[in-house]
Lab assay of single mutants.
Amino acid sequence: PAHPYDRLKTTSTDPVSDIDVTRREAYLSSEEFKEKFGMTKEAFYKLPKWKQNKFKMAVQLF
Protein backbone atom coordinates (compact mmCIF):
# COMPACT_ATOMS: atom_id res chain seq x y z
CA PRO A 1 0.00 0.00 0.00
CA ALA A 2 1.11 3.54 -0.71
CA HIS A 3 1.87 5.96 2.12
CA PRO A 4 2.18 9.76 2.01
CA TYR A 5 5.68 11.18 1.61
CA ASP A 6 5.37 13.12 4.88
CA ARG A 7 5.12 9.84 6.80
CA LEU A 8 7.91 8.09 4.87
CA LYS A 9 10.71 10.67 5.03
CA THR A 10 13.41 10.08 7.63
CA THR A 11 12.53 13.31 9.46
CA SER A 12 8.83 12.43 9.79
CA THR A 13 7.15 13.27 13.10
CA ASP A 14 4.55 10.55 12.46
CA PRO A 15 6.51 7.77 10.70
CA VAL A 16 4.85 4.71 9.19
CA SER A 17 5.72 1.56 11.08
CA ASP A 18 6.06 -1.92 9.59
CA ILE A 19 7.83 -0.87 6.39
CA ASP A 20 11.18 -1.87 4.93
CA VAL A 21 13.15 1.27 5.83
CA THR A 22 15.77 0.43 3.20
CA ARG A 23 13.07 0.82 0.53
CA ARG A 24 11.05 3.80 1.74
CA GLU A 25 10.63 5.05 -1.83
CA ALA A 26 8.73 1.89 -2.78
CA TYR A 27 5.81 2.97 -0.58
CA LEU A 28 5.22 6.26 -2.42
CA SER A 29 2.32 6.45 -4.86
CA SER A 30 3.40 6.64 -8.51
CA GLU A 31 2.32 10.29 -8.68
CA GLU A 32 4.19 11.32 -5.55
CA PHE A 33 7.24 9.31 -6.60
CA LYS A 34 7.40 11.13 -9.93
CA GLU A 35 6.92 14.48 -8.18
CA LYS A 36 9.79 13.86 -5.72
CA PHE A 37 12.25 12.01 -7.97
CA GLY A 38 11.37 13.48 -11.38
CA MET A 39 11.16 10.00 -12.93
CA THR A 40 9.10 6.82 -12.79
CA LYS A 41 9.82 4.01 -10.33
CA GLU A 42 10.79 1.84 -13.30
CA ALA A 43 13.43 4.34 -14.45
CA PHE A 44 14.65 4.79 -10.87
CA TYR A 45 15.22 1.07 -10.30
CA LYS A 46 17.30 0.86 -13.50
CA LEU A 47 19.83 3.30 -12.01
CA PRO A 48 22.95 2.02 -10.23
CA LYS A 49 22.42 1.52 -6.49
CA TRP A 50 24.76 4.40 -5.54
CA LYS A 51 22.77 6.77 -7.73
CA GLN A 52 19.46 5.57 -6.25
CA ASN A 53 20.87 6.26 -2.77
CA LYS A 54 22.01 9.73 -3.82
CA PHE A 55 18.48 10.56 -5.01
CA LYS A 56 16.99 9.06 -1.85
CA MET A 57 19.27 11.19 0.36
CA ALA A 58 18.23 14.31 -1.54
CA VAL A 59 14.56 13.70 -0.73
CA GLN A 60 15.10 12.45 2.86
CA LEU A 61 14.25 8.82 2.14
CA PHE A 62 17.65 7.36 3.08
Rank of each mutant, 00 (worst) to 15 (best):
residue 49 K to P: 07
residue 50 W to P: 02
residue 42 E to I: 11
residue 37 F to A: 00
residue 25 E to M: 09
residue 19 I to D: 02
residue 19 I to N: 07
residue 6 D to N: 01
residue 59 V to E: 05
residue 4 P to E: 06
residue 28 L to R: 01
residue 48 P to A: 06
residue 59 V to D: 04
residue 46 K to R: 14
residue 28 L to H: 03
residue 57 M to D: 07
residue 11 T to F: 03
residue 22 T to V: 06
residue 60 Q to M: 13
residue 21 V to E: 12
residue 36 K to F: 12
residue 31 E to Y: 10
residue 52 Q to R: 06
residue 26 A to Y: 12
residue 37 F to C: 07
residue 42 E to L: 10
residue 20 D to L: 03
residue 48 P to Q: 01
residue 29 S to K: 03
residue 3 H to P: 07
residue 53 N to Q: 11
residue 30 S to V: 14
residue 42 E to N: 15
residue 12 S to E: 04
residue 39 M to H: 00
residue 42 E to M: 12
residue 55 F to E: 06
residue 29 S to Y: 03
residue 17 S to K: 14
residue 51 K to S: 06
residue 44 F to Y: 02
residue 51 K to M: 15
residue 25 E to I: 09
residue 42 E to Y: 12
residue 29 S to W: 04
residue 20 D to N: 10
residue 20 D to M: 07
residue 57 M to S: 07
residue 3 H to L: 13
residue 52 Q to P: 00
residue 30 S to Y: 12
residue 18 D to M: 07
residue 41 K to M: 10
residue 34 K to M: 15
residue 42 E to C: 12
residue 36 K to M: 13
residue 48 P to E: 02
residue 37 F to R: 00
residue 8 L to K: 05
residue 33 F to Y: 02
residue 5 Y to S: 07
residue 7 R to D: 08
residue 62 F to Q: 14
residue 26 A to Q: 14
residue 13 T to S: 11
residue 32 E to H: 03
residue 34 K to S: 14
residue 14 D to I: 06
residue 14 D to M: 11
residue 36 K to H: 11
residue 13 T to G: 06
residue 12 S to C: 13
residue 51 K to R: 13
residue 10 T to Q: 05
residue 14 D to P: 05
residue 16 V to M: 05
residue 42 E to V: 10
residue 62 F to L: 15
residue 34 K to I: 14
residue 22 T to H: 10
residue 51 K to H: 08
residue 24 R to N: 05
residue 32 E to S: 06
residue 57 M to R: 14
residue 18 D to C: 14
residue 17 S to C: 15
residue 10 T to C: 14
residue 58 A to F: 09
residue 3 H to T: 06
residue 22 T to L: 09
residue 34 K to Y: 15
residue 22 T to G: 05
residue 13 T to L: 14
residue 6 D to I: 00
residue 13 T to H: 10
residue 35 E to Y: 09
residue 7 R to A: 09
residue 26 A to C: 13
residue 7 R to Y: 06
residue 14 D to A: 05
residue 3 H to V: 11
residue 48 P to T: 03
residue 26 A to V: 10
residue 62 F to R: 14
residue 8 L to Q: 04
residue 56 K to Y: 03
residue 59 V to T: 07
residue 20 D to A: 07
residue 26 A to T: 09
residue 32 E to V: 05
residue 48 P to V: 01
residue 58 A to I: 10
residue 37 F to L: 09
residue 10 T to G: 04
residue 7 R to T: 07
residue 31 E to K: 10
residue 58 A to S: 11
residue 24 R to F: 08
residue 46 K to A: 13
residue 44 F to I: 00
residue 11 T to E: 09
residue 40 T to V: 07
residue 12 S to T: 08
residue 5 Y to T: 03
residue 38 G to F: 07
residue 10 T to H: 06
residue 9 K to C: 15
residue 6 D to V: 00
residue 29 S to F: 05
residue 35 E to R: 10
residue 44 F to S: 00
residue 12 S to K: 05
residue 14 D to S: 06
residue 29 S to Q: 01
residue 31 E to T: 13
residue 27 Y to F: 02
residue 52 Q to F: 00
residue 45 Y to A: 05
residue 62 F to H: 15
residue 17 S to T: 15
residue 4 P to G: 08
residue 25 E to S: 05
residue 43 A to N: 11
residue 18 D to Y: 06
residue 20 D to E: 09
residue 20 D to V: 03
residue 59 V to Q: 10
residue 59 V to L: 15
residue 56 K to S: 02
residue 10 T to M: 07
residue 44 F to L: 00
residue 49 K to L: 14
residue 46 K to V: 10
residue 3 H to Y: 15
residue 21 V to I: 13
residue 30 S to M: 14
residue 61 L to E: 03
residue 33 F to W: 01
residue 51 K to E: 13
residue 50 W to Y: 09
residue 60 Q to G: 12
residue 58 A to D: 12
residue 35 E to G: 05
residue 13 T to N: 12
residue 60 Q to K: 11
residue 39 M to P: 00
residue 46 K to F: 10
residue 46 K to M: 14
residue 13 T to C: 15
residue 44 F to M: 01
residue 31 E to H: 12
residue 60 Q to A: 12
residue 51 K to G: 00
residue 31 E to F: 11
residue 39 M to V: 03
residue 24 R to S: 06
residue 2 A to E: 15
residue 41 K to F: 08
residue 23 R to C: 15
residue 61 L to S: 04
residue 27 Y to R: 01
residue 52 Q to W: 01
residue 31 E to L: 08
residue 24 R to V: 06
residue 54 K to P: 01
residue 9 K to A: 07
residue 17 S to N: 12
residue 50 W to T: 02
residue 39 M to R: 01
residue 6 D to P: 03
residue 11 T to N: 13
residue 37 F to V: 02
residue 19 I to K: 02
residue 33 F to G: 01
residue 23 R to L: 07
residue 51 K to N: 08
residue 26 A to D: 08
residue 55 F to V: 10
residue 53 N to Y: 09
residue 26 A to H: 05
residue 49 K to S: 08
residue 57 M to H: 09
residue 41 K to E: 08
residue 54 K to I: 13
residue 28 L to E: 02
residue 27 Y to N: 02
residue 4 P to N: 07
residue 15 P to C: 11
residue 28 L to G: 01
residue 13 T to E: 13
residue 30 S to N: 15
residue 39 M to C: 09
residue 31 E to D: 12
residue 43 A to Q: 14
residue 45 Y to S: 06
residue 35 E to P: 01
residue 19 I to T: 03
residue 53 N to R: 11
residue 14 D to G: 04
residue 38 G to D: 04
residue 8 L to R: 00
residue 10 T to A: 04
residue 52 Q to H: 00
residue 43 A to G: 05
residue 1 P to L: 12
residue 50 W to A: 07
residue 28 L to F: 09
residue 58 A to C: 15
residue 27 Y to K: 05
residue 57 M to W: 13
residue 2 A to L: 15
residue 35 E to A: 11
residue 55 F to A: 13
residue 7 R to P: 08
residue 12 S to H: 04
